[in-house]
Nucleic acid binder design. Structure first.
Length: 564
RNA sequence: CGGGGCGUGGCUCAGCCCGGUUAGAGCGCUUGGUUCGGGACCAAGAGGUCGUGGGUUCGAAUCCCACCGCCCCGACCA
């Protein structure tokens, strides 16, 4: 491709509204342009990268026997109502105004419908189906360039099996395929246990790329390899437990005490036996959640424990429900609430909590004597340095960007959409499903996050838009031009993808800067100086290493460099 | 949704607080010339409803109100 005729608008200056390096560089290098918040146009250079990533995905999916589909993004809303996901997605689901249609944020419903209508027998199973398709999600706050957009490409696949054994196999195949996809895309990544969230199902794992700007937080054990999203991560923290004596409950006056720290200071005790009360609303019922001291409630864990989404109760509602203000709520004598507590508080006694009366707390609470706890669950958010649940080594906490998620769905969708099959015995059973997603843009953004410097992108050969960036230093010099033209056709004939900077009247420095910004793995530089000696110069973008050698060796040299 | 910031040629920004010539700079763009190994130089040009609407005023990019758009933080700690 000749740069003189290629549509490639590069920018010298950083776009004002891009915070992350990948975002800045994708705009500067002419890969993308913003159209609206969370919506991007892919320019020719960017689209080349996208297609390469998609091709890697296709190859690895096909290799596990998956079959590619292309499904509609416009879906009848009725199908989404059948699975209850119109409500589950809420405002995130785009609705079409003048038809009863929605823009699909994912495709469980449609693939399951196809399976329902066409798979009748165990003989038709297993199946793995996938597509690479635009998804639409009305994100409340798009951010970080293409990493969280309102429209994005997702590779989504779905497995259909006769039972859970088959599901485990399909899930395992995906796990391996995903590892290959991310490795081939040149990413450093790790896999964590994850929450299934609104998708439902029996288990899931996420593929993560470590990044300060990541929206997810993960706990990692460098000793045994334990890795989990904070939404599910646990640690070995000793329970609060029982003290020898169990005094009768006693109301204590605690004027103007609002926080756990103030209370601990006021009573001159540690925070551990202070049972913090949090009030949540799930559907229309009120839930009191008890945590030890300053332990942080993890809402994802709460949702998992309750089996439904809970939201923090607003202060106004709170007073109406309890008669007390924030800071004074407690479990003793509380009516019309279900009460759950964090595992650390199981069977504990000698606790202090709110009295449901402003400026008062109750001391010497024994959970086995004074309160009816409806259940103990792991609800707390773990913190860095706590002990690994497997081996006891200190846990590290890092931020990550989720680049893929695999789910064992089970029968949630097949049951609600009646996707059944007849087994060997002629019994009708729901198909057992898995669902597996990859954010295609995120692979590109993360690749740039992991492969760039101040001057620009440093592509791996695997997804680089071109293999070679050929630059002729001076287009006014006939010999230089002739040599560059020769090299251009020679490399193209050898099957290499070459971006040839043949622009007239562009200074050498300008060309070099553009080459570094665009980031092709190898730069071939044709200049007067070396040409006179019959030499050619080559620069490896990743290392900055330069090589000068006789022209005749160029092709062999390039082939060696581009092999991996 | 809550909080903060921003909106001025294609891009990055100054001017606004304290209203008053013809609204500026750098980059980019056009034309001519000189250059040609790390974002060259000279000269001449083109290009702006100052986000939109309303208000105050003799006069608004500048002050006030509303709306729109974009970015960032937050949306457990009662």
């Amino acid at each position: 491709m000749r740069l003189s005729t290629y549509f490639l608008p590069t920018l010298k200056e950083n776009p004002a509204d891009a915070a992350m390096a990948s975002h800045r560089l994708m705009v500067r290098a002419g890969l993308i342009r913003p159209l609206a918040a969370g919506i991007y146009s892919w320019l020719p250079m960017g689209w080349r990268v996208m297609k390469k990533v998609m091709e890697i995905i296709r190859e690895e999916m096909d290799a596990i026997g998956a079959q590619e589909f292309q499904l509609p993004a416009l879906n009848p809303i009725e199908i989404w109502e059948e699975t209850g996901r119109v409500e589950a997605f809420g405002d995130t689901l785009f609705h079409v105004k003048n038809r009863p249609l929605v823009l699909a944020p994912t495709h469980e419903e449609i693939f399951t419908t196809i399976a329902r209508d066409n798979i009748k027998s165990y003989r038709d199973l297993p199946q793995i189906w996938y597509q690479i398709q635009t998804k639409f999600r009305n994100e409340p706050r798009p951010r970080s360039g293409v990493i969280r957009g309102r429209q994005f490409f997702m590779k989504d696949s779905y497995s259909f099996d006769t039972g859970f054994e088959g599901l485990d196999k399909s899930y395992g195949l995906h796990r391996e395929a995903y590892k290959n996809i991310y490795s081939r895309s040149g990413l450093n990544f790790f896999i964590v246990g994850a929450s299934s969230g609104a998708m439902g199902g029996t288990g899931s794992q996420e593929f993560m790329v470590e990044s300060q700007d990541g929206e997810d937080t993960c706990a990692l054990c460098d000793e045994c390899g334990y890795a989990a999203n904070l939404e599910v991560a646990s640690s070995r923290l000793k329970p609060v437990g029982r003290l020898g004596i169990s005094n009768p409950v006693e109301e204590i006056h605690t004027p103007n005490i609002k926080t756990i720290d103030q209370l601990a200071e006021f009573l001159k005790i540690s925070t551990e036996r202070l049972a913090k009360s949090l009030v949540y609303k799930a559907d229309n019922s009120a839930v009191l959640v008890l945590m030890s001291g300053n332990d942080q409630l993890n809402e994802a864990k709460l949702t998992a424990a309750l089996g439904k989404t809970a939201t923090a109760m607003q202060p106004a509602d709170l007073a109406a429900f309890t008669g007390a203000n924030a800071g004074s709520i407690g479990p003793v004598g509380l009516k019309n609430f279900s009460i759950i507590a964090d595992k650390r508080l199981e069977d504990a006694n000698e606790l202090i909590s709110g009295a449901n009366k402003d400026d008062f707390h109750i001391a010497h609470i024994d959970f086995n004597r004074d309160v009816k706890i409806d259940g103990y669950y792991d609800l707390r958010t773990i913190e860095a340095g706590e002990s690994c649940p497997n081996c006891g080594h200190g846990l590290r906490i890092v931020n990550g960007i989720e680049i893929g998620h695999i789910f064992k769905l089970g029968t949630k969708y097949s049951v609600s959409l009646r996707a059944n099959f007849l087994d060997e015995a002629g019994a009708e059973k729901p198909i057992v499903m898995g669902s597996y997603g990859i954010g295609v843009e995120r692979i590109i953004a993360c690749h740039i996050e992991q492969n760039h410097d101040d001057n620009g992108i440093k592509w791996d050969k695997s997804i680089a838009p071109f293999d070679v960036h050929l630059a002729s230093v001076n287009m006014d010099n006939k010999d230089v031009v002739a040599a560059a033209e020769n090299i251009y056709s020679e490399l193209e004939e050898a099957g290499m993808e070459v971006l040839y900077d043949d622009r007239q009247g562009v200074s050498p420095g300008f060309k070099f800067k553009d080459a570094d910004l665009l980031g092709m793995p190898v730069q071939v530089i044709v200049g007067e100086r070396n040409l006179k000696q019959g030499n050619i110069e080559l620069k490896i973008r990743k290392t900055g290493e330069r090589k000068i050698f006789p022209m005749g060796q160029l092709l062999t040299e390039l082939k060696t460099l581009l092999k991996n």
